[in-house]
Design a protein around this nucleic acid. Sequence first.
DNA 1: CGGTATCTTGAATTTCCTCAAAAAGCGTGG
DNA 2: CCACGCTTTTTGAGGAAATTCAAGATACCG
Lengths: 216, 216
Amino acid sequence: MISEPGCPVRDSALLLRQACITCQGRPRTGQVEIPAGTVLYIERDDSDTVFGLIDGFVRETRTLPDGRTQGIRLACPGDLLGTEILASLPYQCTAETLTPARVCQITRGDIAALHRVHPEQGLQLSAALGREAAELRESILIVGSLTAEERVEALLDRLMESVPAGEWLRLPLSRAELAEFVGLAPETVSRVIHRLARAGHFEVRGRRIRVPPAMP
Amino acid sequence: MISEPGCPVRDSALLLRQACITCQGRPRTGQVEIPAGTVLYIERDDSDTVFGLIDGFVRETRTLPDGRTQGIRLACPGDLLGTEILASLPYQCTAETLTPARVCQITRGDIAALHRVHPEQGLQLSAALGREAAELRESILIVGSLTAEERVEALLDRLMESVPAGEWLRLPLSRAELAEFVGLAPETVSRVIHRLARAGHFEVRGRRIRVPPAMP
DNA sequence: CGGTATCTTGAATTTCCTCAAAAAGCGTGG
DNA sequence: CCACGCTTTTTGAGGAAATTCAAGATACCG
């Protein structure tokens, strides 16, 4: 077992870097550092590259011909991106880094090789894909069945899940971008955030937000 | 290559039955015929069984504590069901057959064996999972960004995609169930269906519906 | 041919959106 | 450090879309 401390993809037991072993140092493979605001891929593009997100956050969005945009997924360290490639589909979303990020790039050929050479890794890949689908189902429930208030709360909870109470977080998304994720208008998001704040769920100052510190 | 005519799962190059070869006729494996209205699994149940849908239609739904229900996915022949099992998660949805159906039951152990013994099948499994995720992303766009009219049209188009124009289809879902899938109230679905009918998109008679035959 | 569940329709209400303007935040350069 | 201009965010008022509730019509089943 190769040990690479600090790699969340590895922590999920998916050793994507093993793909490198089988593809012998092909240029597109391996970890890459990228700044915030970088577009990893664009919807409808054809390619054969899947990304493993090592560090940072990435959002996937889809835009309709008339400009309406829907946030699809918020990818966290350990998640895969562009998995529709495995089904020989073009990219379905546009993926953009919200923070500086580090990614693995793996071609479909690498994945095929991974299955051949490390079948147990193939099983881990299936697990990662199953987890991705589970997150997407969660999102369908959120945008399909919850009220505006519940949707915003779910999204903020998600964004703050790794932030300790009392600590301020600067949201990596504008109100308009938050709105895209939950299928609401930006003004509604703003209103709801302040309603939640008044109800004691959060403290808000512009783009900065925190869960109130526990007071005894 | 094993040839089994008439199996849509096989047609997608995913030979799930090969799992049987490796698990030597374990009772839970193999094709099963089930009547309409059968529940395959229930949300929050723990299990290790994934289903391959050979024939018929299955709906996945999730229900909130207060009773609100969201339709998550409409599985068609060739689709997999219960793939969250691969990520060691409990079933996230409840799956129920809408029509008489035929399914393969595959345990997680079978899938592991499949990866070991038939690595090329592992790749096909990844493809199927990528396709599933792609469908879920499509649904997020539909419920998150489209108007009531557009949502209902998208759903009906989907249900009728394999029905030739001029041919009547009896919908396998009530208005209330259609509504669950698109995140609307049943009354809204009813109204919108008739609005679409008046606009010439469909002809409707209760639960029967058709695309008007082309008239020259 | 009833009885029952499903579906349709209408009216009132709620929720969320749109548009517009004011306020606040943020980076820049003096 | 402050003033400026820009973008983002907030807030309000009015309007549109979808929901709810209730009643009536229709389809389906034995």
